[in-house]
Amino acid sequence: MRLKPFEFLNPSSLEDVFELLVRYGNEAKCLAGGTDLLVQMKQRRILPKRLINLLPLSELKGIHKAEDSLRIGALTRHVDLERSAFLEKGWNLLALAATKIGSPQIRHLGTIGGNLCNASPSADTAPPLLVLHATVCLSSLKGNRQIPLEAFLTGPGQTGLREDEILKEVILPKPPEGSLFTYLKLGRRKSMDLALVSVAVLVTINPERKTFEQVRLALGSVAPTPIRARAAEKQLGGNLIGEEAIREAAETAAQECQPMTDLRATAEYRREMVKVLVERAVKQSLGFPIPPTGI
């Protein structure tokens, strides 16, 4: 299917973008990597009259390290995340998730901002960002505002982005010292698939007392948005590390998600897989052996 005609707006600065957004409201859409947007337009699911090309805006590019945080420009591509030397230690979780997105071709186009604004429940960057306590910086003529990613993602395809705003950057605070982490993604095949279920985990432990300290779990594809599994986190936090405890927490996670049935999987299967994947992910983050899993 061919794209329908639209007007192409090439702003030269962020201010231009803001003005265009004010002028055209919902008639205009921002174009980043385009890997989701152009497909939706080809399928006639959305037909914007105007596209605002963000790609040339260098303000939205690059990963910047400050003392206690990392600022990732919205136009940072998945492949840039994979390769960035800044994404070390706990932040590396994001790079790990980026490698599991689509294909190399898609990863060379798709951006972190696009992935979040598209707001798919299966967005691969979201669960890692949730456990990394990411906030997003939203920008408009009125200035900047920062909200936690968790509050930004409001539903399938829905975000807290106002009509006059763009997502400018993603801000990651420093992860706890000694963070252990992993990202598991189950698809129908071992590549090029949307997650049926994905799990991001980040934990810290007290090696002497053999207990969990902080435990953060996030789930993809099993609720209207990627979510934190707080009940399961609570169950593990501060408690002794043990297979039984992990299994029980995994069951709790399975109970607290709200999966749907679609043509990719049933809700029951997804729920069951949350249990399996959370257990495996926590174990893997601790260095326990697990069977080869997912993509």
């Binding site: 192409f8 090439n10 174009l31 385009g34 890997t35 152009l38 497909v39 596209l51 090309n53 790609l55 492949v79 190399p104 071709q105 898609i106 060379h108 186009l109």
Partner: peptide, 16 residues
């Protein structure tokens, strides 16, 4: 290859 990197030409506007 776009600037030596593999991309799907069907998912890029020429203007991009």
């Amino acid at each position: 290859l776009l600037d030596d990197e593999p991309v799907n030409a069907c998912l890029i506007l020429a203007l991009q």
